[in-house]
């Protein structure tokens, strides 16, 4: 039987074909989500530049440029078009830089970038395929490779910056010296620490923006904060003499920075609301456990990486029951 009309037999304008839905949502792209993260990181970036001056600028430049450069390089090696347009490399670089101490030598940021992009992301197949948060992979790698440059002592060096850099970080002081800290500097950020983690208010400001834009799932930071507050409260009740209250636990260290900007990375966090709660509470509990019992003063990096690894399992465990029930088992 002959065809009524082959496509070439029907002259007319060439039409665009596409599966539905045919309704545009102009403002919603991966790039826009990444841009949201960069905007949300602006307050803590500003605080870090105010506190650590050109040290902060240098670290951020190394991180952002390093990650972008390696991303481009690996894309070339794989014969792919430049992926820089989606801004994910810039986000990784900025988060990596903000997680480093001000005093880290230049090669720490560069090696961290290489590992973050290369081992953290590209080997899995690029954006969306990675299991672990790339910035945290880079951070964990340099933490192991350059313990001297990233240990507690590295933060506390007589530099040319503000007086803050001669203090111990609040968590180190609490852990090693048993000193409590006044709460106000912890909130505003006028304390020593990794570049981005010092200001609790800055983290909150950016984090709330992210949640309102729905770029970050609000359940994750809320789960982390709730778990940390609960365990911190118990710890405070058990040892009230230390003077390290729930607010100290939340505002000191990288907990809020991690809760809002690191753990909420959509790629490495669960899909379903139930999974997000499990993931958030898991990270919060893990951070508190590591702070209390590990040799390190802080545990955000390890906690996030651990729960990243559990994410596929959490997703599998929290498959929603579809309306009408699942497919019955095969005979």
């Amino acid at each position: 039987m002959s065809g009524i009309a082959a496509p070439e037999a029907s002259p007319g304008p060439r039409l665009e074909v596409s599966p539905g839905p045919h309704i545009a949502r102009a403002g919603l792209t991966t790039r826009r989500m990444m841009l949201d993260v960069l905007i949300a990181l602006a307050p803590v970036t500003a605080v870090s530049i105010y506190l650590f001056r050109w040290h902060a600028i240098l670290q951020i430049a190394i991180g952002v440029l390093g990650c972008s450069l390696f991303e481009l390089l690996f894309a070339r090696m794989r014969g792919r078009p430049s992926p820089l347009g989606d801004l994910s490399a810039a986000v990784t670089g900025l988060i990596l830089a903000l997680s480093l101490p001000w005093s880290a030598p230049w090669y720490v940021g560069l090696v961290g970038s290489l590992v973050a992009v290369g081992i953290g992301k590209v080997v899995f197949g690029g954006l969306g395929q990675n299991i672990f948060n790339p910035a945290m992979v880079g951070r964990a790698f340099v933490m192991v490779c350059f313990p001297a440059a990233l240990g507690a002592a590295a933060y506390q060096m007589a530099g040319d910056g503000a007086a803050i850099v001669t203090q111990a970080t609040p968590l180190t002081a609490a852990k090693q010296l048993g000193q409590s800290a006044p709460l106000w500097p912890l909130l505003v950020g006028t304390v020593n620490g990794s570049l981005g983690e010092t200001s609790a208010l800055g983290c909150l400001l950016g984090g709330i923006y992210l949640c309102l834009r729905r770029t970050a799932a609000w359940r994750i930071p809320l789960g982390i904060i709730a778990a940390a507050a609960l365990l911190g409260g118990i710890q405070n009740l058990a040892a009230p003499a230390a003077g390290w209250t729930v607010l100290h636990h939340l505002a000191g260290g990288a907990l809020l920075f991690g809760a809002f900007f690191i753990a909420t990375d959509p790629v490495t966090s669960p899909l379903t609301p139930r999974g997000m709660w499990i993931y958030g509470i898991g990270i919060g509990a893990m951070v508190m456990f590591l702070r209390a019992y590990s040799g390190y003063p802080e545990g955000v990096v390890a906690a996030v990486l651990l729960l990243n690894g559990a994410t596929p399992l959490i997703d599998r465990f929290t498959i929603p029951r579809p309306v009408g029930g699942p497919v019955p088992a095969r005979r």
Binding site: S18, H22, R25, G128
Partner: peptide, 27 residues
């Protein structure tokens, strides 16, 4: 209309939360 593209899934979970019949769409 914005074009559909062969972009990688970033696992954000919006499809899963909007699905009226509760499918884990992303996966």
């Amino acid at each position: 209309v914005a074009r559909l593209e062969e972009n990688p899934c970033i696992n954000c979970g919006r499809c899963t939360s909007v699905c009226p019949v509760r499918i884990q769409v992303a996966v």
